[in-house]
Design a binder for these strands. Structure first.
Lengths: 212, 212
DNA sequence: TTTTATCTAAGGGTATACCCTTAGAAATGA
DNA sequence: TCATTTCTAAGGGTATACCCTTAGATAAAA
């Protein structure tokens, strides 16, 4: 039976060491590379080709999305499984766009991980139950609003969330205060919120804005 | 050399399995119990006494803070090290109040974990560098605000963040609109924000409010 | 006992948010 | 060519946010 060569990219040393040992226990799995840095992984790809890549999404300097995009530019056949700690919905679509083959939560167990690696290695996909549910749930009140915002509304929405007043937004976008009010009012109707406070919470919930 | 008996409480199965293997590699360390549930750990404590406890903070149902509090009620000598994945500042003070002996990030490495366990087992403390820095850094613009909120201000802050208007907050707390205004104004001065929008963002950033 | 902190509430003011309508200009698409 | 969408902007209104000050009641700490 052929060994499946696995690379792990995760900036959490303990988790990486742990998962390495977990995977080492499974026969025909072999961790050939592990690193905390997206850059070092891209270097590694210059000379090597792992069968499956486990990629943390939330990393400093160069995150999982960017690392995956660059890695797939180097080798389009690369099979990447995204790992995420909490149910971070922000990057789901980005990672899927980037071309990952699977998506599992770090709180999943050894067997799910094994299943995911085997599925992806065989040319399939693996998306964990929790994530599919979350995506499905989101699409109800999320996708309906998505694409409904005009460009200008998105501009205004973003500035509103940053705490700018109508006057400040008007100055920044070089449009009248009245125009800003119109955009804001249209956003209210589309999102079904009553005031800016609710809008900010809505925007954060629906990943139109991040406090980080 | 006496074996150090370690218990691990973490709802992330993969991480727990991994850390178990990591600790198993270190001589005189022995993982005697591991679970994803705070309740099951409290049950375990009825009949057993581990030397050191590794406790995840962010857990569903019963979190690390509550589990630690209840565990220390059962046995005040218990040595608990808190584990946190990201730099979650919310529960630092709560955990320290609860009586933990150490605090390390999950992204720290095997050696730091080993050091922490040995330090705590020998009756000392261990707080990782990153956390001390974070606490020190925060104390400039955060700890000054922390504990400066009065009970009523916290009530108002929470309702403001939920999008309630001054009138609605007044109705909910059975106080005058003018009183709510006073509290809100005091919060503004303490947090150095100009309006509710900035306050909401501030509250989320500083973990006084969560959109989840 | 005196001081301090907290909660309460008011008067009286300005600024901004929020809501309605109408409407022209420009671009897009049938 | 005509209809639709988007961006722009205004008039004119009410409601709410926001900012001062002052001040009584209460409870805890010095």
């Amino acid at each position: 039976m052929k060994q499946i060569k696995i690379a792990i990219i995760d900036d959490h040393d303990l988790f990486r060491e742990g998962i390495k040992l977990v995977l080492g226990q499974i026969e025909n799995f072999e961790v050939v590379f592990d690193t905390s840095s997206g850059f070092l992984f891209l270097d590694f790809l210059q000379n090597s080709l792992p069968d499956v890549v486990l990629m943390d999404i939330n990393m400093p300097v160069i995150d999982g999305v960017e690392t995956t995009q660059k890695a797939l530019q180097l080798n389009a056949d690369l099979k990447v499984i995204a790992l995420t700690m909490f149910s971070d919905t922000t990057h789901y679509t980005q990672m899927i766009d980037a071309g990952i083959k699977g998506f599992i939560l770090k709180k999943s167990n050894k067997f799910e991980l094994q299943q995911a690696i085997n599925a992806v290695y065989s040319g399939g996909n693996y998306f964990s139950q929790e994530i599919m549910q979350k995506l499905a749930f989101q699409s109800v009140n999320f996708a309906s609003a998505l694409n409904q915002f005009t460009h200008r509304e998105l501009d205004v929405l973003h500035l509103v969330c940053k705490g700018l007043t109508t006057q400040e937004i008007s100055d920044k976008l070089f449009i009248s205060v009245k125009t800003v009010e119109v955009h804001r009012s249209n956003i209210f109707h589309k999102t079904d919120v009553r005031n800016i406070c609710e809008l900010i919470v809505w925007a954060i919930k629906n990943n139109y804005f991040s406090v980080e």
